[in-house]
Design a protein around this nucleic acid. Structure first.
Length: 475
RNA sequence: GCCCCCAUCGACUAGAGGCCCAGGUCACCACUCUUUCAAGGUGGUAGCGCCGGUUCGAUUCCGGCUGGGGGCGCCA
């Protein structure tokens, strides 16, 4: 049974890079009918917060990365928060000390630096005398626990990278328990991975160099290490690690900017992985079917918001209008529309979305396009109204208004017949009349086809708007 | 400083010795469709980092160089 995990530390919102790691784990688990575990690595007491944990869980849910075991739902290996597992780590640490595989270190950072000139720890405390220890104790020092690194080569057989060899001597004795009694990442991660029966560790390449440490700890407990797969990193446009400097880097920001979960899911999957047949747009199910960790690209990938945006526009088209309408509600509210007004106009909103959705790039585009249809008192863009307020324009509009008042039923085909006939009779260019009408009716120069637009507005509103536009002297 | 990983268009990638004077997607440019804004359609610009091997033949195999990324914390 395949068991994988995603183990974020709750020190910020879900980062794009982490989301990709989570996604690959998720895809691998689902593809292999395995288990996807969510574990919270909150051993950094200073930076972790419940707030961030909630946020990360929320973002993962939004992305559709559902987990089978986790802090909120429990599971056979709970608890899934490291802070709730401290006793476990302490027991294992004690065991290592009693077996002579770990030892107390009393050095301060300054002392180590002084001795080694920033070359890292020199295993100084491996063989201290009882007197030395007594002295440190009397000084009130609190020791850390260090792992006694054995002299041997460590070989990582990585699913993505193949065999990677680390020679003996490239590692100093490293800290496994901090002086506050909390384990370091390297220690907790290993204990949890074997305790939780993790079979495959899929994570970023930044951990490749740390893997020898982890393997050594596994071995010190007589555990067989899981399979490792180190994926490429996610970089910004300048080829450095994706960070705040590059603009929006959290899943949350994209979500708030009107991106669809499907698009993010699909785009991220294509960062470092690709299908045999060049397909770009994938339903989630197909992505799960086709995904394979072996075929992941080894080189780092630059996160490209432009392609994400394109992909989002593709999903805006695919999604049923009713769904887009529902997802748009928060964006309409943010644009200033009352909840009650949105609800009342839901049918209209859906109709307009149906006509306009192939133009949308994100959900943020919806309010602007909806506006002329649910705003009672529209205003006319004064910069553009100039050319639509010429004497001829006013005359044409007055003439056509007379005819519009006669139209029955007020449907697009009837409207089109009548307006085209009007143009012919008056010998005016259809395009000009269309533009003029559109502007008088909506106040803007974009929108759905004129006749669809009028049908949705309805006869009463259409007439009222044209009359108001004609009377209005301000423009 | 030491160690590790990587290297195809601007970006994401296909390519696993001849099928490649390198294919797809985004972006960009042009044309086209069109009652607006878009979308769509068609076409185009653009790439195997460098130097040595191996081979009848290298984008593909090997070595070096260069370049990029990462690790070496009482951060994860």
């Amino acid at each position: 049974m395949v068991r994988v995990r995603f183990a974020p530390s709750p020190t910020g919102y879900l980062h794009i890079g982490n989301a990709r790691t989570a996604l690959f784990n998720y895809l691998f688990a689902r593809k292999n009918k395995g288990v996807f575990v969510l574990r919270i690595e909150d051993t950094d007491l200073d930076r972790s917060s419940d707030e961030f944990e909630k946020g990360i869980l929320d973002d993962l849910r939004w992305l559709g990365l559902s987990w089978d075991e986790g802090p909120d739902i429990g599971g056979p290996y709970q608890p899934y928060r490291q802070i709730e597992r401290l006793n476990l780590y302490r027991e294992y640490a004690t065991r290592l000390v009693s077996e002579g595989k770990a030892y107390q270190c009393w050095c301060t950072k300054e002392e180590i630096e002084e001795r080694t000139k920033a070359k890292g720890y020199d295993n100084y405390c491996r063989n201290l005398t009882d007197e030395q220890i007594a002295k440190f104790k009397s000084e009130g020092r609190k020791p850390v626990l260090r792992f006694k690194v054995p002299e041997k080569d460590v070989v990582v057989n990585d699913i993505i990278r193949g065999i990677v060899r680390f020679e003996s001597g490239s590692l100093n004795d490293f800290v496994i328990m901090k002086s506050n009694g909390v384990p370091t990442f390297h220690f907790a991660v290993v204990i949890d991975d074997f305790e939780m029966k993790i079979t495959h560790v899929i994570r970023g390449e930044d951990h490749l160099s740390n893997t020898p440490k982890h393997i050594l700890i596994f071995e010190s407990f007589g555990q067989i290490p899981p399979q490792f797969a180190h994926m490429s990193m996610t970089l910004g446009p300048d080829r450095t690690r994706l960070s705040k400097r590059h603009g929006a880097t959290s899943v949350r920001q994209y979500r708030e900017n009107g991106f669809l979960s499907d698009a993010m899911f699909n785009y991220l999957a294509l960062l470092g992985w690709s299908s045999k047949d060049n397909q770009e747009i994938f339903p989630r199910e197909k992505l799960i079917q086709e995904f394979s960790i072996e075929s992941c690209n080894k080189s780092n990938a630059i996160f490209d918001p432009a392609k994400l945006l394109w992909m989002n526009s593709q999903y805006m088209k695919i999604k049923p209008s009713s769904e887009i309408a529902k997802l748009s509600i928060p964006f309409l509210e943010k644009a200033g529309y009352e909840k009650s007004s949105i609800e009342k106009n839901m049918k209209t909103i859906e109709r307009v979305i149906d006509l306009e959705k192939e133009k949308f790039k994100t959900l943020k585009d919806v309010p602007e396009r909806i506006s002329p249809f649910i705003t009672e008192d529209i205003t006319w863009n004064s910069g553009l109204s100039q050319k639509f307020k010429s004497p001829e324009a006013t005359r044409i509009l007055s003439d056509i208004l007379v005819e519009i008042k006669e139209i029955e039923p007020f449907e697009k085909t009837v409207l089109e017949d009548m307006i085209r006939k009007f143009c012919e009779e008056k010998k005016v260019k259809t395009g000009e009349v269309f533009h003029l009408l559109r502007f008088a009716l909506t106040g803007v120069t974009k929108g759905p086809g004129l006749f669809e637009l009028m049908e949705i507005l309805g006869k009463e509103v259409s007439i009222k708007r044209i009359e108001k536009f004609l009377v209005n002297k301000e423009y």
